[in-house]
Design a protein around this nucleic acid. Structure first.
Lengths: 204, 204
DNA sequence: TATATTATGTACTAATCAGTACAAAAAGGA
DNA sequence: TCCTTTTTGTACTGATTAGTACATAATATA
């Protein structure tokens, strides 16, 4: 149990000129295009629109804390949207198929960026093992979503494939990881769509 | 047409105390565990066992040239071994299956390192677009090996699957890319082997 | 042995890095 | 208005970065 102070209008002292979620979002953009190591603090601060004083006061853990918060915030928002789309869909399995197929339609600029979370797993060195663990956990969360959709669809006889949901879930996160690397090397490849269609036949 | 001078015993001047291929190999180890950006020149030089004078004389392009050479050298050796194994195998398709399944048996330390070439594709920032292109080309070379094995096996009626060899080749390099990310997050996962078996059923 | 050539080790440089120190600014409350 | 609290901007620090300059070492040849 702890108290969390937020700077609402009742709080004394000079008011914050920024919203933490907003600046974290802006940091995501920088980290995503430049990578954790390559993104300099100055660069991040400029994109976030705040100075060093404000930054190191709000993010006592510095660049590392900012990055970890950005991973969690990105993942949380992604998952919430995904879970919502699933909840309102009358065919979640088809939704997942579309979700993957859409990867081939992204503009080249997005294809080159890969998965924000997967990048962390590959880009971080052993010195940042703890942050790597966070990324692994977040990807595992996405895998759990796949698994639960599959389990439900199987229970409702809406999916013929009888493979264990855990295995199909891992199959899908592995497909996700693969495509997000592969499409970097040759964005817009005519064959990638066929690969996706082939890979998704397990959902028929 | 150009002349390439090698420091054999007939050459004048102080003899090199190192073999270029050998020190590049040692650099591969450092780059692989630490990543391109995180591997410092000092660290690389210590692992390579040479001083700055020698290094910047032999590698005029500095760290970047060393990295690109390491990518090519690693890939060339990998492909040569792979092509040799294929050439002496009486069932290349089964060889590829075993090749992938072996990924699940690697020690954790190796699982965490991923694919040396794939890492480059994900770790390099836009500022190193040219090096990224090299990595993409090298992965494409591996894809070509898959494709040619499949084409030949189909022609010899040793592979039932009638999918275009180019698509199956890309499917396999995509599987390679995926597994090399996925296994980083949870090395030794019981389900990964089942995912691989499922993914490789296309080779039945 | 003298000379040309190539390689080596060390000292140095200039830039950049993440992070800190701290005075000034901007608010609320008395 | 003055005091307290919090945020902000700037100047600074010390470490580390990749890379360079250059004197010296070690060889082949004449």
């Amino acid at each position: 149990m702890y108290l969390r102070f937020v700077n609402d209008s009742k709080m004394a002292g000079r008011p914050k000129i920024f919203d933490e979620q907003e600046v974290v979002d802006k940091a995501v953009n920088v980290f995503w295009t430049k990578g954790y190591e390559t993104a300099s603090a100055d660069e991040l601060l400029e994109a976030m629109g705040i100075g060093k004083g404000s930054f190191y006061l709000a993010f006592k853990g510095g660049k590392k804390e900012l990055y970890e918060k950005s991973l969690r915030q990105y993942s949380d928002r992604f998952n919430k949207q995904f879970l919502y789309d699933i909840s309102v869909s009358d065919d979640p399995i088809q939704l997942i198929r579309n979700f993957f197929m859409a990867l081939a339609d992204d503009p080249k600029s997005k294809q080159m960026k890969g998965c924000y979370i997967g990048n962390a797993l590959v880009q971080l060195s052993d010195g940042d093992a703890d942050t790597k663990l966070i990324a692994a956990g977040l990807l595992s969360g996405m895998e759990d979503i796949f698994t639960s959709v599959i389990r439900k669809a199987q229970a409702q006889k809406k999916l013929k494939n009888k493979t264990k949901p855990e295995v199909l879930g891992k199959y899908l996160i592995n497909l996700w990881n693969g495509v997000n690397v592969t499409r970097r090397s040759n964005p817009g490849d005519q064959y990638l769509r066929e690969v996706l269609e082939m890979s998704l036949q397990v959902l028929n």
